[in-house]
């Protein structure tokens, strides 16, 4: 049985249909790339899965995690799912972290909240997690405030926080878009390794096919709030069936850098 099953997911906001019947399946430990341009509904899909849609949004369809329906779950139960079963890495690590809280405490928070660890035990585990995402001198990094770390370091902290409770599903929404290319390469490699080690399922959202290729083999193309195409990356690259995908692909090829030319 698949871990995440999304059926006919529809989101309306202010009279506009933003998601229009999204179907999606993700098995335990599987990876899926979600690709599309701005406004295609990529981020909204992730937010709907997390139950973090803006006020006034009308949601329809079904989002099941391990068979449990998440849509319509009350706040208390949904907040237990978030952070423990499903975690998310955001695009902008600087806005995703609390600027007034030391980094170590932020990594420790889900452990205290969901796992009931004592402050001291959670702090110790946070240092281990910070170490596991490759920050030098993890004890010192844990005491730092977000402004004292670089964007790449903060995104590593974001990944450590997300993986703290060993979630079954990790949503990553353009996690490297705000980073320089050399840092991006390191963060993608880190994500790839950790997701593998933890056996976490990954839903990776991006507008960049080349970035997607580094972490996922299966891809779902979104456009105008609908699933236009789904398949292995190789199939989609070789024989895109939808016009929109062809445009996206032609554009990606036209601006992509080639070593040989």
């Amino acid at each position: 049985m698949s871990l995440l099953t999304v059926r006919g997911l529809t989101v309306r906001l202010g009279g506009k249909t933003l998601l229009d019947g999204i179907d999606l399946d993700l098995g335990a430990g599987e990876r899926l790339g979600l690709i599309g341009e701005s406004g295609s509904g990529k981020s909204l899909t992730a937010l709907a899965v997390l139950g973090l849609l803006p006020d006034g949004a009308e949601v329809g369809g079904s989002v099941r995690l391990d068979g449990t329906e998440l849509l319509g779950l009350d706040d208390r139960r949904m907040s237990r799912v978030r952070g423990e079963r499903i975690a998310m890495v955001f695009q902008e690590p600087r806005t995703a972290l609390n600027p007034l809280m030391r980094v170590g405490r932020q990594v420790a928070e889900p452990l205290r909240r969901h796992r009931g660890l004592s402050t001291r035990a959670a702090a110790a585990r946070a240092v281990e997690l910070i170490d596991s995402v490759g920050l030098p001198d993890p004890e010192r990094a844990a005491r730092a405030y977000p402004h004292q770390l670089s964007g790449g370091q903060l995104q590593r902290v974001g990944i450590a926080t997300a993986l703290a409770c060993d979630p079954a599903l990790l949503l990553a929404d353009e996690p490297t878009t705000a980073l320089d290319v050399t840092v991006q390469a390191d963060v993608l490699a880190l994500l790839d390794r950790l997701v593998d080690e933890h056996g976490t399922a990954l839903l990776f959202i991006t507008h960049d096919l080349a970035v997607l290729a580094r972490v996922a083999r299966r891809v779902l193309v979104l456009g105008g709030g609908r699933v236009l195409e789904e398949g292995t990356l190789t199939d989609v690259l070789r024989a895109p069936t939808h016009d929109y995908t062809r445009t996206l692909l032609a554009a990606a090829r036209a601006t992509s850098f080639t070593r040989e030319a």
């Binding site: 290319v181 050399t182 991006q184 080349a210 690259l237 992509s256 080639t258 070593r259």
Partner: peptide, 21 residues
Amino acid sequence: VLRAPSHPYTRALLDAVPRLP
């Protein structure tokens, strides 16, 4: 420069650019 970068930093930069498979 793209075919044969001479500086190590240029090489690292070019290697890091994600490419379509």
